[in-house]
Design a protein around this nucleic acid. Sequence first.
DNA 1: GTTTGTGAAACGATTCACAGCT
DNA 2: AGCTGTGAATCGTTTCACAAAC
Lengths: 207, 207
Amino acid sequence: MMRKVADSTVRRLSLYLRFLEEFEGQGVATVSSGALASRGSTTSAQVRKDLSFFGSFGKRGLGYPVLELADRLREILGLRQRYRVGMIGAGKIGSALVQYRGFRQRGFDIVAIFDNDPAKIGRQWNGLTIQDIALLESELARHPLDMAVLVTPAEPAQGVTDRLVRLGVKAILNFAPVQLVVPDDVVVKTVNLALELETLSYALANR
Amino acid sequence: MMRKVADSTVRRLSLYLRFLEEFEGQGVATVSSGALASRGSTTSAQVRKDLSFFGSFGKRGLGYPVLELADRLREILGLRQRYRVGMIGAGKIGSALVQYRGFRQRGFDIVAIFDNDPAKIGRQWNGLTIQDIALLESELARHPLDMAVLVTPAEPAQGVTDRLVRLGVKAILNFAPVQLVVPDDVVVKTVNLALELETLSYALANR
DNA sequence: GTTTGTGAAACGATTCACAGCT
DNA sequence: AGCTGTGAATCGTTTCACAAAC
């Protein structure tokens, strides 16, 4: 398949898909690169370049067919299927994410929650029982996961990651403030919330 | 002050600061660019280049003095002061963030919570009373904010942003899945959680 | 006339490599 | 000898600009 597409390009493709879905809802049939660009904050050339990595979907003089392009973007982004996602950690952020509608809407189903806190194990969240992390191996053997969302404290994060990797999980969304080490065939995306605030304080301090 | 430092550079500076604080805790007095680099996943040249934007703090043949460099990074990142942060929206993610220790630890104090849901207004979260968003203007007039964390649904996000901007808020961390429009002197950092998962599904689909 | 698709140019970030301090 | 600081080289991304398609 396609190789060497920049992360920034992939992120923009996700945004284009959202805009296309809005246009779809409004019954618009075709859309120009300029129209897509103005909805995001980019340029028409950027939109065309991004799309051209994957083929040519547009009609010159006309623009892009909304339905077809949306469908093709779903395929490119791997959104034609649903994903089984496990939540590792049942703290505050885990709780919020389990209930977050945006995940299910986009095809990501949270199907299991794990924690090591006896006070939490056995509780129900959104219809799911919080399971003992000690049962991770036996549980995933029967019900494999496509992805894991890691919302543990920093210390256990690498250890749990190693177990997930051994169990065949190939994608991890990491909220623990650590740099996880994984093999080449496993993708990790780290979100560090305090760090985002620090980019804001940097901007405030340097004006 | 300094201008034109890439966002990626600022993010690495935040990471270096964390590593320096760990070294500080271990009583290490000086650290080389190579040591800092291996803790993050970067190169010694990158570390030196990043730091060189702001001056030269190292001693050739020796490395960087841990305490001094950490302090200088705090100054650069605007972390010598604490920030008054308002949480706009008292939903699931707002709840998690209000209780998230990482913010306070790094100097970001959540001092007010606003929502428009009568069922939530008046409740206490972490010692703070959820206030009616209708009172945003009167409240901020008396108790100004340095930053806002926006955790509303997509629809009201731009409207609330306009009000925050009018009230002098210069930095917004946005979790609503929309592209906010703000004047040049206001900084916005958007975190789109569903989009992060989509970069993972892209990676899984294209291997 | 409008808009795509795409090489070429411009820009920006990272890596190299080495002179200069300690 | 070890490590920084930094210009120069490299690599990657974005923007330009225009021929080709409709």
